[in-house]
Design a protein around this nucleic acid. Structure first.
Lengths: 200, 200
DNA sequence: TCTTTGTTTGACCAACTGGTCAAATCAACG
DNA sequence: CGTTGATTTGACCAGTTGGTCAAACAAAGA
C-alpha cells in the first residue's frame, strides 16, 4: 500500500541522512540541531521535517542503517577458514572501516559512550547473538590448539578497541603522531599484535 | 591578594565539579545543561553561577584537573626499570583507572570524539611531549633487544585503546558479556596481550 | 490546459537555554 | 547584639530549540 518513493524523495532523504551523519557524528544527538542538519543538507528546516517526522527519526534511521554495515565484517568470519587468517582478516577489515568510515565510527562511539539510549536493545539482541556465535567458533579453534587459549570475548573487544580507536580518537592520534596517515603504521602494528596474541 | 576559600566555597565548588563530572560524562558538553548540573549538585542555577562564571568554566576546570590524573600512569614509566614490567605495569595502571574512574574516561572520550574543541592545545602540547619522551625510551628498549621491535607510538595507542574501551564502551561490553565484572577477565587478557606483543 | 499530488517555505509557537540582577538571607566576628 | 561580607534565590531576559501550519509553489499525468 505504501507508494514508491519519487526521485526527489530519494535524493532528499539521502541528502538528509548524509548531512545527519556529518552533524550527529561531530556533536552527538543532543548537541546537534535540526537547523545544522537542514543547512548541511541544503534544505529549510520545515522542508527537512517533511521527509522525517522528527530529529529522533533521523538519528535512529542512521543508527539502524549503520548497525548492519558495522557488523558485516564480523559476519564474514568463517568457521572453516584458517583460524589465524580469519581473525587477522577480521581485524584488518575493521581497521579499513575506521579508515573509510570514520564518521560512522564516531556516530556509534558517541551513542555508546553516552549509554546507548537509542540502541540498547540492539546491543543485547543482534550484537550479543552474533558475538556469542563467533566466540564459540574462536573457542573451538583454541580447544583444537590452532590458536592460543585466549578469552574469545575479550579478543573481539580488543579488535574493536584497537581499530575504532583510530577513527574515534583521530584528533588525539594526529596530535601525537604528526603523520598525515596514521593508518600506514597502524596496519602493520595491528597485524603484529593479532599474530602475537594468537600464536599457540 | 586573592582571599582563601571559605569552608562553604570548598564544599560547593567540589560538589559542582562532582556533579559536572556526572552530567558532562553522560551527555557531553553541548548535551548538558546548567540546570542538570545545579540539581545534581544540590544548588540552584544562579547559585551555581555564583561559584563558576559559566558552563564553559566548569567544563574546562574539570578537563584540566583530569588531564593530570590521566597522564600520571604514563609519567610513572621508568627508563631504568625492566622493560616488559614497565610497559605491562603501565597498561595495568591504565586498566585500573578505567575501572576506578569510568566517568573521567567517558568525559575525556566525549571531548576527543567530538574533536577536542576545548583541549586541542593540550594534546599537541603536554601530551605530545610526554608521549614523545616515553616513545624514545621504548624505542631504546627495542634497539637493545629487550623487547620486540614494535612501533612505540602505536604501542602506546594500543594501551589507551585496550584499557579505555572498558570504561567508554561499558554498556556494550556489559550487553555482550553478561558478567557483572568485565574487568575480571580484562586484566589477565590485557596481560597476555602485552607480553605476547613484546616478546622479542 | 487543468487538476491532482507532491514539495517548499515564511511565519509562528511553546519550551528550554545560558546567563543577569537586585533583593533577601545567612554566617561570623567584634 | 549589630554589622559586615558571604551566600542564596525568585524573577527575569534574550537567544535558541524542536516542531507546526496554512499557504504558496512545482510536477506530472489526464
Amino acid at each position: 500500500m505504501t507508494k514508491p518513493p519519487t526521485r526527489i524523495q530519494k535524493r532528499n532523504r539521502a541528502a538528509i541522512l548524509t548531512a545527519g551523519l556529518d552533524v550527529f557524528s561531530q556533536f552527538g544527538f543532543r548537541g546537534s540541531t535540526l537547523d545544522q542538519i537542514a543547512t548541511a543538507a541544503g534544505l529549510s528546516k520545515p522542508n527537512l521535517l517533511y521527509y522525517f517526522p522528527s530529529k529522533d527519526a533521523i538519528y535512529t534511521a542512521l543508527l539502524e542503517r549503520l548497525l548492519e554495515t558495522w557488523l558485516a565484517p564480523l559476519h564474514q568470519m568463517d568457521e572453516d577458514g584458517d583460524p589465524v587468517a580469519e581473525i587477522v582478516g577480521y581485524a584488518r577489515r575493521k581497521l579499513d572501516m575506521s579508515r573509510d568510515y570514520p564518521r560512522e565510527s564516531r556516530l556509534f562511539a558517541n551513542e555508546i559512550v553516552q549509554g546507548a539510549p537509542h540502541i540498547a536493545s540492539h546491543l543485547s539482541g543482534e550484537l550479543r547473538v552474533l558475538v556469542e556465535e563467533k566466540a564459540a567458533i574462536i573457542k573451538g579453534w583454541s580447544r583444537a590448539g590452532q590458536i592460543a587459549d585466549v578469552d574469545p570475548h575479550h579478543l573481539i573487544f580488543s579488535i574493536w578497541a584497537l581499530t575504532q580507536h583510530y577513527a574515534d580518537f583521530d584528533v588525539q592520534v594526529r596530535a601525537v603522531l604528526d603523520t598525515d596517515d596514521p593508518f600506514a603504521g597502524a596496519g602493520p602494528f595491528l597485524d603484529h599484535v593479532m599474530r602475537s596474541i594468537l600464536r599457540p
